[in-house]
Amino acid sequence: MIVVNDRVSLEEAELDFEFIRSSGPGGQNVNKVSTAVRLRFDATNSPSLPEDVRRRLLTLAGRRIGGDGFLTILAQTARTQDANRREAVDRLVELIAKACERPKPRRPSRPTLGSQKRRLESKRKHSETKSRRRDSNSSDD
């Protein structure tokens, strides 16, 4: 059981790990040992995710969600399978935790009285400048 927060926890069986060859550090060992981890998580059909969290997760994940609805995370920075596996799970937990945060509703603000007056004063000055230009141009003709 992987606990994300008090509301969401994932079953280990929902995570699918695939070990592949890494392009990271390791010298000649890189060519022999599959240390990189590809974590796949069925975000669209997971029974562990509440519907609102699922919607936000699909939005947050972006290109990491495939056409089949699986979220894919690749971890290959460490030199061992275990460390890369932990990193992939940590990144998944972090992403789900971010999806659990409800967005703060936007409340439209109103311009202050002072800003309205400054705006109108600026428009009046600009208008006067342009009208002075018009008057001086008509006498030249």
Score class of each variant (00 low, 15 high):
Asp16Ala: 11
Lys104Met: 15
Gly27Arg: 00
Ile96Pro: 07
Thr112Tyr: 04
Arg119Asp: 03
Ala97Asp: 13
Pro50Phe: 04
Val53Asn: 01
Ala36Glu: 00
Val33Phe: 07
Asn5Ile: 00
Ser131Ile: 15
Glu121Asp: 15
Thr59Tyr: 08
Pro108Gly: 05
Lys117Phe: 02
Glu121Arg: 12
Gln81Tyr: 04
Gln28Ala: 09
Ala88Glu: 01
Ala83Phe: 04
Phe41Asp: 00
Gln116Met: 08
Ser23Pro: 07
Glu12Ala: 10
Ser46Gln: 00
Leu10Val: 06
Glu51Ile: 14
Ala78Gln: 11
Leu15Ser: 03
Ser131Asn: 13
Asp16Thr: 12
Arg54Gln: 10
Lys130Asn: 14
Asp16Phe: 10
Asp68Trp: 15
Ala83Asn: 09
Leu71Gln: 00
Ala99Gln: 05
Gly67Val: 11
Pro105Phe: 06
Asn31Val: 12
Val30Cys: 02
Ser136Asp: 07
Ile65Cys: 03
Leu120Glu: 05
Leu74Lys: 02
Asn84Trp: 05
Leu58Asp: 01
Glu128Leu: 13
Ile73Val: 02
Arg38Lys: 03
Ile20Tyr: 00
Lys32Trp: 13
Arg38Ser: 01
Val93Glu: 08
Ala61Leu: 04
Ala61Ser: 10
Gln28Glu: 05
Arg21Gln: 08
Leu71Met: 02
Lys117Leu: 09
Phe19Ala: 08
Val33Asp: 03
Leu10Arg: 09
Arg85Thr: 12
Lys125Gly: 11
Val4Arg: 06
Leu49Glu: 02
Lys117Val: 14
Arg63Gly: 15
Asn137Tyr: 08
Arg86Leu: 10
Ser139Pro: 13
Arg79Lys: 03
Asp6Gln: 14
Ser115His: 09
Asp6Glu: 13
Ala61Phe: 06
Gly66Thr: 02
Asp52Ser: 01
Ala36Arg: 01
Arg119Ile: 04
Thr129Ile: 11
Arg85Leu: 07
Lys98Trp: 05
Arg119Pro: 04
Arg40Cys: 04
Ser23Gln: 04
Gly69Ser: 09
Val93Asp: 03
Thr112Arg: 13
Ser109Gln: 12
Lys104Arg: 14
Pro103Asn: 06
Leu49Trp: 03
Val89Ile: 15
Phe41His: 00
Glu14Ser: 02
Leu58Lys: 03
Val93Ala: 12
Arg63Lys: 13
Arg7Thr: 14
Ser127Ile: 10
Arg85Val: 15
Glu128Asp: 15
Pro47Ala: 04
Pro25Tyr: 01
Gly114Asp: 11
Pro103Phe: 02
Arg110Trp: 04
Ala13Ser: 12
Arg102Ser: 13
Asp68Glu: 05
Cys100His: 10
Val4Phe: 12
Leu57Arg: 00
Asp90Met: 09
Val53Gly: 01
Glu87Pro: 05
Asp42Thr: 05
Asp52Tyr: 07
Ala78Arg: 12
Arg64Ala: 01
Ala78Asp: 09
Asn31Ser: 11
Arg106Gln: 12
Ile20Thr: 03
Thr112Ser: 12
Leu39Asp: 01
Glu12Met: 12
Glu101Ser: 12
Ser122His: 14
Leu74Cys: 06
Phe17Thr: 02
Pro111Cys: 02
Ser136Val: 13
Asp68Ser: 05
Val30Ser: 01
Ser139Thr: 14
Arg38Thr: 00
Lys32Arg: 07
Arg106Val: 14
Phe70Leu: 11
Val89Gln: 11
Arg107His: 15
Leu10Ala: 06
Ala13Lys: 04
Phe19Asn: 07
Arg102Met: 14
Leu49Val: 06
Val89Ser: 10
Phe41Ala: 01
Ser46Glu: 00
Arg56Cys: 11
Asn5Phe: 00
Arg133Tyr: 09
Glu51Trp: 04
